[in-house]
Design a protein around this nucleic acid. Structure first.
Lengths: 364, 364
DNA sequence: ATTAAAATAGACACCGGTATCTTTTTTTGA
DNA sequence: TCAAAAAAAGATACCGGTGTCTATTTTAAT
């Protein structure tokens, strides 16, 4: 054919294949450069990159060329051709949440140094455009998978949308929210039940409880577990020993003050998360109580603050990091350690009580 | 041969392979579909997407088509054609670091709901392949910009590599590390000096200091500021009042115990970060000291733990979120609020002391 | 009204990979 | 040994956008 002589001025660089020695800096190298260098076709280089079966000698030749030139494939071009971006998106509701940050560590550790990338995207659960925002992001990025953290994960419509868009996803929460392959959850209810059993075993009779916000599944599950454990222990829940909280430190202080001002205050207070437990610790200190002799306090999360408090906090360890790892493995089985069975991955990780200083038997 | 005989039905190209009328769900729509629908060329749609100047009626026509079809452009295709991925990469050394997590919040808030995405990439500063790992990631992703957090930011060779790869970057730290347009920093030295002035003004004479790890610029700057402030106040630094720490809670406990066991203990202890300050708080509590009457404690960071401690921690607020916002604005001026001048962006954000309960005048 | 200049829209190559189909090479079988 | 089958490598279209240059329309000027 002709028409190759086209425009004289621009794009001269292709006219006479790059001219001599115009080796561009950095990694402007393409698969074509590697192919020429190795004396094979583009497709052959592509085969090497994708580890397709081929003759060993050819592979070696190409790998040598890649090594020599320092070639790094362009992720966007691959993504375009694959119609999948090698990215995992982490959708979070509140970028302040320590849980989200901890979860992210799990995700990053599972990704390791694979070619996967992590994209973090905060969205507002209250926004009326929540769904379309997520849809647009997914349509634009076409990620390998999406992870929804609480409370986003509690919405079924998000899952349905992902299926419609053909995007793999995992919903993370304090109870199973979707089919196994799309769920990662901690059994908060059981964990609280176990913790309460331990507390009761120490001899505590009056156990205060600080609720989390009603809108959070974790808060509801934890309260349910607490009540079920009491019932199982033969104790009728005393509604005056329940105080509302919003998962914040301040709300924990207020709840603690309220519970400790009761005519007959509890000998131990279970707070639905560590921030509120820290608030209760403060309320107790302000009242001059000796901890844990005069008041035991138990939290939930095992966040960074738990060990830094005085006394250090007995708390339910929420296996958030493990959940992050699990979510990635479910989305991209290739991240699994070598011939492990993706189908054998669990969905649930069990939280468990960590005993520290803030819990002891009640005073005589 | 001409291919102008315009296919009647769109996507004729799929007719053979995919069967007829297989209108795929979701956003398998392309710019070509929009162009056909609007009766214009691909390029015209592209112009609308990129907000290039054009006739209002044409623009309206195309925008209507986009709206009607629910078209979302493919980020990978754009990135490939642009040779730039609409992504900002945040390189962090230690995914555990609370500072990194807080910084990330600033980055996310600056990104807002623009089409930018945030990718987080942990790398190990100790790894001998650190540089090549970063280079490979940048070559693969071709991001709009890269942000290096401490202690990665302290390496000059990383900056040089980015320039070689033609990647915009910002180095974040506790002192200016690069030219203004590539730096975001907090003046930790000045901030500590100011804090010490306040402490001295309260009447404190013996001020203990808990160092951070020598390998961190922030630790060195904070100590330098501390010493300079003492000298400025006419006090000769007493080396026995310095204790080593590693920015961890445990090291803070140990340092606190050491300082409080001195024959003549300090009346106030300045810890180089909040975690260590929390450790000092614990050491003081263990010794039965009343805070702040018998010992004042001051930290640095103003992290989440500061308000949750008892007593709440007086600490230097480290404006990490603001630094995150600033870094994004520097990398992508388009994220600035509307006609603000990118050149007018500051590089430095000043930390300042937040007075809380843990600091008071020394006892008589 | 006519033409030159400016503004706008279109045609087509191209970004850097992968998929499909074809050609070439190697292996196998008689 | 030679043809047939299998394996390997190559040629080319294509993913979904943007850049460049050309064609067309609109505006301005005479």
């Amino acid at each position: 054919m002709d028409d190759t002589k086209r425009t004289p001025a621009p794009k001269e660089r292709n006219a006479a294949p790059l001219g001599p020695s115009v080796r561009k800096p950095g990694s402007a190298l393409t698969i074509t450069d590697v192919a020429e260098f190795a004396g094979v076709s583009k497709k052959t280089v592509s085969r090497v990159l994708n580890r397709e079966p081929m003759k060993a000698t050819t592979r070696a030749k190409v790998e040598a060329a890649i090594e020599t030139l320092g070639f790094v494939p362009n992720a966007q071009a691959r993504a375009l051709a694959f119609r999948k971006n090698f990215v995992i998106v982490l959708f979070i509701h509140d970028s302040t949440s320590p849980m989200a940050m901890t979860f992210q560590r799990g995700v990053l550790s599972a990704i390791g140094d694979s070619e996967l990338a992590l994209a973090v995207r905060p969205v507002n659960r209250e926004s009326p455009e929540l769904l379309s925002e997520i849809e647009t992001f997914l349509a634009r990025q076409k990620p390998m998978g999406a992870i929804f953290l609480p409370p986003l994960s509690e919405r079924d419509d998000i899952g349905e949308m992902c299926q419609r868009l053909n995007v793999k996803y995992v919903r993370v929460g304090s109870a199973q929210l979707d089919m196994m392959s799309r769920s990662v959850w901690s059994n908060d209810r059981e964990a609280v039940m176990g913790a309460v059993r331990d507390i009761v075993a120490l001899g505590h009779k009056r156990i205060g409880f600080v609720r989390g916000p009603k809108g959070f599944l974790s808060a509801r599950e934890r309260e349910t577990g607490f009540r079920q454990a009491l019932v199982a222990a033969g104790v009728t829940p005393d509604e005056t020993l329940f105080a509302d909280g919003r998962y914040t430190f301040d709300s924990g202080v207020a709840a603690g003050q309220a519970l400790l001002s009761l005519p007959q205050p509890p000998s131990v207070i279970f707070a639905s998360n560590d921030s509120m437990a820290a608030g209760v610790v403060r309320a107790a200190h302000e009242k001059g109580l000796r901890l844990p002799q005069e008041l035991s306090i138990v939290g939930f999360d095992d966040g960074p603050v738990a060990v830094q408090l005085w006394p250090s906090l007995t708390t339910v360890h929420w296996p958030v990091i493990e959940m992050g790892v699990l979510a990635v493995h479910k989305l991209v089985p290739e991240t699994l350690p070598a011939g492990e069975d993706p189908a054998a991955l669990p969905s649930m990780v069990a939280p468990s009580l960590i005993r520290r200083e803030s819990l002891d038997a009640p005073a005589r």
